[in-house]
């Protein structure tokens, strides 16, 4: 016996040894070990036997006649009549447009909802006018949570308590609506990714 220590160390490499996949140094050690360790030698013989069985059992079979011609016929057909490639997968289009629309609406809604809070905090989002399209400006006021509502919800108290941090919190608040929109945009990524994969 070559000792358990050597067995434990070298036995995991038996497979690679048999397949000639070991580095020269370990291979040498393995060969020396197999000379003295009957147990590992027996294990090696069993593995070699299974190898022989597998090599002889998993032989190649002849491929069906006409297979090459069939492949070439199909590839020629495709070359002569290349399929029209859509830039966008039609079956994914509703999902993409739907999720895109949700993203845009959420962005608008987020900005509108937060604008009252921003007003209350003294920082009117300068982006508000830029982001909300002109045709939505008249109705934006309908959705906006006005400053007095924010105040009634205790927003003013919170803003006062925050003191010097008010600017920072307010800037975070403006991110709120945009953040929601980003999440919605991320939802659309798998749709776009699938489309790109399908059309490339």
């Amino acid at each position: 016996m070559g000792g358990n220590k050597h067995c434990d160390r070298l036995r995991p490499h038996l497979e690679a040894f048999l397949h000639d996949e070991l580095k020269a140094e370990i291979r040498e050690q393995m060969a020396e070990h197999l000379d003295v360790c009957e147990e590992c030698r027996k294990e090696c013989e069993e593995m070699r036997f299974l190898d022989d069985v597998l090599f002889s059992a998993l032989t190649m079979e002849s491929s069906p006649s006409g297979l090459t011609e069939e492949i070439l016929r199909r590839s020629n057909l495709i070359r002569e009549n290349p399929p029209e490639r859509d830039w966008v997968r039609r079956d994914l289009l509703p999902g993409m447009l739907g999720s895109g629309l949700v993203s845009v609406l959420t962005l608008l809604l987020g900005v509108i909802l937060w604008s009252g809070f921003l007003e209350l905090s003294g920082i009117l989002d300068p982006l508000e006018d830029a982001i909300i399209p002109w045709f939505l400006q008249p109705v934006a006021g309908l959705w906006e949570v006005p400053p007095d509502v924010w105040e009634s919800m205790g927003a003013k108290m919170v803003l006062d308590a925050l003191g010097p941090w008010i600017q920072w919190v307010a800037s975070l608040a403006s991110i709120g609506g945009v953040g929601l929109a980003i999440i919605c945009l991320m939802v659309t990524v798998p749709f776009w990714w699938r489309t790109v994969k399908a059309t490339s």
Partner: peptide, 8 residues
């Protein structure tokens, strides 16, 4: 040159 292997 490859179809036999791929088929198998």
């Amino acid at each position: 040159s490859h179809q036999h292997r791929v088929y198998n």
